[in-house]
Design a protein around this nucleic acid. Structure first.
Lengths: 333, 333
DNA sequence: CTGAAAGCGCTTACAG
DNA sequence: CTGAAAGCGCTTACAG
């Protein structure tokens, strides 16, 4: 039913090999021959069968995005990230398939063993990530969005947490704040520990300020309750840096409810989030952006370099940038 | 390098056909033979090559989720939806690939022509959707999340907008509100017109209340400005139903800034959004939920019925349910 | 119940 | 520059 290379070859009076050469531009073909073939293809509406091509060439041109569907709450900025990764793949002639895999990683091995994908992109990487150890010996190219403790030999793109955090702290200290709290998310499940972003932000925060860290479940309801905890556990703090989108909006709402004025009584800065998120709060939040769109594209590009055997690009770290809103102001006297 | 059926067959002393029969359980195989084969598979760590299987069986077991990446802003509830669709596909032994396609639909025809997918799931359906017309004659199964004006012969799952809106309006009228405004999003691009959800909500709203409709760009910043428009264009309204997540949070923040008290001066209800979204606002919003998780699963199931040639399930409409928050209250006297 | 063989629609050495 | 042919790793009538 579908038009095959055989049909095109017959119509153009050539062999299917020659058709393949022009379709793939894989070998020079004489002008007149090429024109005949191209015309035949156009007339018949030929489209090459990707599955057959995949089998013969040992390349599916599909890459997988593995994300731990169950073990970690997906933030909203994930939308930008995934969209941009899918688009970057499409631009390079690849397809992106979504693999919701549990973090125990055996599932990942099975999936890879099916031979359906040319490479795997891992997101939500933990410091010691079982998935990396599974993939390493499997001779399938992979790249990380995020990074493990030991990144020797790995292809990855990640946020520059040190720089991002410094941007946030600098902004606040310039405003006169001396007692700053950092809020990160909790590790929620057995299979999910030592999430890179939290560990690295906390480490950077410890170095720069030595201030206290509060951990909070990653949902707006818990963020709301955090307003109370903050008053109890860090009564003298004048500013808070929140490292999770879901928490921050809830926190702002919770502070409101308690009658804490932002930024008069308390400055709030949300780190690694989006402009839209900022505008949703009242007052509009000061944020340090999450480079999600950029990381999606860079991650796919890094992976495709490996897939295509090109020299892998050096690992990339991207810092977020400060977008001043109205949720931060001078420290109270 | 990889273990093939040929290897397994050799080791078990059978033909590859027989191996295939046990792998697929497609024909009865005598107990002892089956055991030998299963042992051989285990010893060799055999996994069948999905690409070869796809070529031979004419089924890739991949389904595509086509979403208009550029023409429409993705809401946050999309995360639940996509995750649930991917999971439902995985549960049924299928993979979900993301296709960011422009709305002009020729791209879609090309992608389908590649023979990579067994079926297509369309989201963000417009009343007259070019993609549906492209797909109809292409003898590839497809299903819609949402629905066109004419649904004759189509497989779809959608929100029950009439019922969902009625739930919202009932809640407000019970509280004594008589002047209610509906806020929907704008159609932003040439390629994107008459978005089903807005058209249907507006129609239902017209029938039930006859009240005014305001349209707003779908981002929190515009939602914020909407607070002012509301005062000008519907000065006597005491309640507003907002049909977009991005707008609603901005609106609440904007009302705050203007000094409008919620719900004392104005009740705000967000329709078709999530519990998390509700908790992010202050006060926590009263909402009618978006059945995103459920629709993701149902959409995949409807599509797979068609793919597998089963009798297609009857179209499903799901209403959201009311989750009372603190953003709605008695109408001011 | 099991096997030999054709075939899915391509790609890719190898000849010429 | 072009073609005949093997082969990618399976599935599936068709025999037996």
């Amino acid at each position: 039913m579908a038009v095959t290379m055989r049909d095109v070859a017959a119509r153009a009076g050539v062999s299917i090999a020659t058709v393949s050469f022009v379709v793939n531009e894989s070998k020079p073909v004489k002008e007149p021959t090429r024109l005949r073939i191209e015309q035949a293809m156009a007339e018949l509406g030929f489209q090459r069968n990707m599955v057959a091509r995949a089998l013969a060439s040992r390349q599916t041109r599909i890459i997988a995005l593995a994300y731990p569907a169950l073990d970690h709450r997906l933030g909203w900025s994930i939308v930008d990230f995934v969209t941009s990764a899918a688009q970057a793949a499409a631009d390079a002639g690849y397809h992106l398939v979504l693999w919701p895999v549990s973090n125990d990683a055996t599932e990942l091995a099975e999936l890879v063993g099916q031979g359906l994908v040319d490479g795997v992109l891992l997101m939500h990487v933990q410091l010691d990530d079982a998935r990396v150890e599974v993939l390493r010996p499997m001779d399938i190219p992979f790249a990380l969005i995020g990074r493990t403790r030991d990144v020797e030999g790995l292809a990855y793109v990640d946020i520059d947490f040190d720089a991002s955090l410094r941007v946030a702290v600098d902004h606040l200290t310039t405003l006169g704040h001396r007692e700053i709290v950092l809020v990160t998310g909790t590790q929620e499940t057995q299979n999910f520990r030592e999430y890179g972003p939290y560990v690295r932000l906390e480490a950077a925060f410890g170095q720069v300020t030595g201030g206290p860290v509060l951990r909070c479940r990653q949902d707006p309801g818990s963020g709301r309750e955090l307003a109370t905890r903050l008053a109890v556990e860090a009564p003298t703090a004048t500013a808070v840096i929140v490292a999770d989108e879901a928490i921050s909006a809830g926190l702002v709402a919770g502070l409101h409810t308690r009658g804490t004025r932002i930024p008069t009584d308390m400055s709030v800065l949300c780190i690694l989030t989006s402009r839209d998120m900022a505008a949703m709060c009242d007052p509009p939040l000061t944020i340090v952006t999450a480079p999600g769109v950029e990381l999606g594209r860079l991650g796919v590009e890094a992976l495709l370099c490996r897939v295509q055997g090109a020299t892998p690009p050096p690992p990339v770290l991207r810092a977020g940038e400060l977008l001043p809103g109205e949720s931060t102001g001078p420290a109270p006297a």
